[in-house]
Nucleic acid binder design. Sequence first.
RNA 1: GUGAGUGUAGCUCAGUUGGUUAGAGCACAAGGUUGUGGUCCUUGGGGUCGCGGGUUCGAGCCCCGUCACUCACCCCA
Length: 428
Amino acid sequence: MPKIQSPPGMRDFYPDDMRQQNWLFDAWRDVSRSFGFVEYEGPIFEYLDLYKLKSGDGIVSELFHFQDRGEREFAIRPEMTPTLARMIAARANALPRPIKWFSIPRMCRAEKPQKGRLREFFQWNADILGLDEMIADAEVIAVVVAFLRRIGLSPSEAVVKVSSRPLAARLLESIGIAPERQGGAFDLIDRMTKTPAAEFDKKWNDEFGGSAPAARLRSVFRQSSLADAEAALGGIDGPAREAFADLWNFLKAFDVADFCRFDPGVVRGIAYYTGTVFEVHAADRSHRALAGGGRYDNLTGLLDGPNVPGVGFGMGDAPIQSLLADLGRTPKLDEALDAFLIDADARFFPQLMAVANRLRANGLRADFSYKRQALGKQFKQASSRAARVAVIIGEEFEQRGELIVKNLATGQQQAVAIEELATELSRL
RNA sequence: GUGAGUGUAGCUCAGUUGGUUAGAGCACAAGGUUGUGGUCCUUGGGGUCGCGGGUUCGAGCCCCGUCACUCACCCCA
């Protein structure tokens, strides 16, 4: 039989990997719930049309899609937003507001794998729907920052770059780029940090140099605070500016502003987002975006649903794990047993089983060797299984109903009556 | 789809100008140890040297092809 490996861009999760994954998911869940979000889930694949509707026919080559026997066309979900839109649209009028939902879907994209980007991955999604106010935008960012703090990242390691589509449009307009030309301008700006400066300047000047030379664009779009950008422009005003100031005040009120920077270069596509946009990056730019999100005016519009505004983000598991590994910040995790049971002699094995049954019934994690062998060997196993204590069943048990409980971290041991074993272990 | 780099044990790697039976550390297993683990010692299992072809008396090493992985480009919802 030929050797078959895992498909390209897909991962096996051995127990060590699974612990890391669960640790990450626990952080995502705990943080989501601490902000009052509730969890939802959808199907692993949807009708292909759902994705065509949102992203156009060009999306199909990026999807894993197939037909069932009824020749219906499906695609494994490449993102969660269309599913969310479908679910919200179906019950839009029945759901109490605000809708604060999160999910950790597994998804697939038919891409060529590279660093921090796989064909199968998990992506934390959190959205606030049914509320068109800046406090929601700020709270969504606050959730992201709470997560960054939770996994031990500081503002010197991860930053949230925040902008606003209407504000960035206003900035472009103020340097002389008319609204109908801004789509092309944003396409270029989106790639500004990846493109060598000279090459970018040439492309920009070829297309927009007549209105605003590249140097002028840089003076406005390479700012880390709105005040600096305004100074470069000589002041701007209007609703976009007020809304953004509002957002910033809420970010301060949520106590997350230290992680946030104004960066009008954050564009994130042009069709989808309509208001606030943000991305999370490693401060040293060693990775692709760790997360991205923003406000969309009408999530359910393309499904003929009622108008529901929303704001949310997605964060993939791969870039985060990759960053933590590079920083040496991967947590040390084990699945420790509460007790490893040891028989002093093979004749005590039936009693050992009885003790194991008793501990397990009490919700404790207990295990033992399948082989009857020397005490030393059994202790070795107890250590390698990271058990908190070893419990010896021997002569004392036969004579007085006592077990020897040895704390494997301190080396101390004591006799404990069988009746008190479970409570004693819970206490230790 | 395009380009570059890398393929030797489960992992990290060594392997001389091409030369006998391809090695080490870690990990795994057994023993040293019939009432005490972590650190020690001994032994063992594990390899189609990614795969196929070529050159050669002889290829892990050289050549061609191919596949896989990694990184980057395209794209990024």
